[in-house]
Structure formats: structure tokens, C-alpha cells
């Protein structure tokens, strides 16, 4: 069982005042507590959730501590890793991009960290649009989509 919070640290690029950052973190934390989903926090205050899935599989979902904003509206970033490797074949990239078209929300994205390329299913939404029910749905969508991809493409359960 692996954890991917080191990728989450790379997303924290916003420069918010401490007050605002704390308030946004608290808003998201309250919402997450309302969902009843269990989580832990990493050093960067990202939320880490693990979902138990069918066939004894599990999948980690990370919610980035919201520091990005559009029009002063905090953007919540939820992601789950489904691919990890030193290179990504073209047909796999095409698969990710084609799948994105059929997804109601969220997208496959790639990120290079050191020599490793991570493919993750990513959902981004303004914090004001989320209630506890929608937040739970989005976390589940991220977990199921990434795990399905990981199972099919990687054949493992990280």
C-alpha cells in the first residue's frame, strides 16, 4: 500500500495569507467531517483518505489543502493516482485523453516528479459548490476511476 502525498505538496503553489489559508482549510475540514469519511492529514495539511473497494482492493484519495483561488474562490483539488512509471506509452496517453471525454467530471493528468511520471485522476471544483454529499461523491468517483485504471493498466493495487 503506497501513499502519494508527496505529489500533493507540489500542488501547493498559492500564496495566501495565513488567516485565509487557515479559514479555507477549516471550511474543507468541516465539510469532510460532515461526510463521515475517515481521513488523516499529512505535513502539508493535505487530507488523505483510503477507500476499501471490491476484490479486497483499496485506493488512496488526496484532497489538497485549498490554496489555489479563482476570483477569491478557493479551488478544491481531489486526486487519486492510477499510473506510475518512468515513461508513458502513447497509446496509454490516448486512452487517458479519450476517457476524459466520457467523464462527467474530472480528468486524467500527468505529473513528472523526479524521474517518475504519475498519472492521476483529478477533480477540481470551487469550494462554494461543494456540500458534504457532493464531496463524498467526488472522492468516490476519484477512487473508483483511478483504481479501475490501475487494475486494468498496471495490474497491481498500490
Amino acid at each position: 500500500m503506497r501513499t502519494y502525498t508527496h505529489i500533493g505538496v507540489l500542488f501547493i503553489v498559492g500564496a495566501l495569507s495565513l488567516d485565509r489559508a487557515y479559514s479555507q482549510h477549516q471550511r474543507l475540514k468541516s465539510l469532510l467531517e460532515e461526510t463521515g469519511l475517515k481521513y488523516s492529514l499529512d505535513n502539508a495539511k493535505n487530507f488523505k483518505l483510503r477507500f476499501s473497494l471490491e476484490e479486497s482492493r483499496s485506493q488512496e484519495v488526496i484532497i489538497i489543502n485549498p490554496t489555489d483561488q479563482i476570483q477569491e474562490e478557493p479551488i478544491v483539488h481531489i486526486f487519486s493516482v492510477g499510473f506510475e512509471g518512468t515513461e508513458v506509452p502513447s497509446d496509454l496517453m490516448q486512452k487517458m485523453l479519450s476517457e476524459n471525454r466520457s467523464r462527467k467530471i474530472g480528468n486524467w493528468e500527468l505529473m513528472l516528479v523526479g524521474n517518475t511520471i504519475y498519472g492521476f485522476f483529478s477533480i477540481k471544483a470551487p469550494l462554494s459548490a461543494l456540500d458534504a454529499n457532493l464531496l463524498r461523491i467526488l472522492c468516490q468517483v476519484a477512487a473508483l476511476t483511478a483504481d479501475e485504471f490501475e487494475k486494468e493498466v498496471m495490474g497491481v493495487d498500490n
Partner: peptide, 17 residues
């Protein structure tokens, strides 16, 4: 690569073909 890597750096954008 561009379609999959570039949006990851942005706040809310994704990509598809």
C-alpha cells in the same frame, strides 16, 4: 504529453481528445 501535463499545472482545467 502537452495535453496531459499542462493542465495539471493549472487550477481547474483538464483536457481530452
Amino acid at each position: 504529453g502537452r495535453l496531459l501535463l499542462y493542465p495539471a499545472q493549472y487550477k481547474i482545467v483538464g483536457s481530452e481528445i
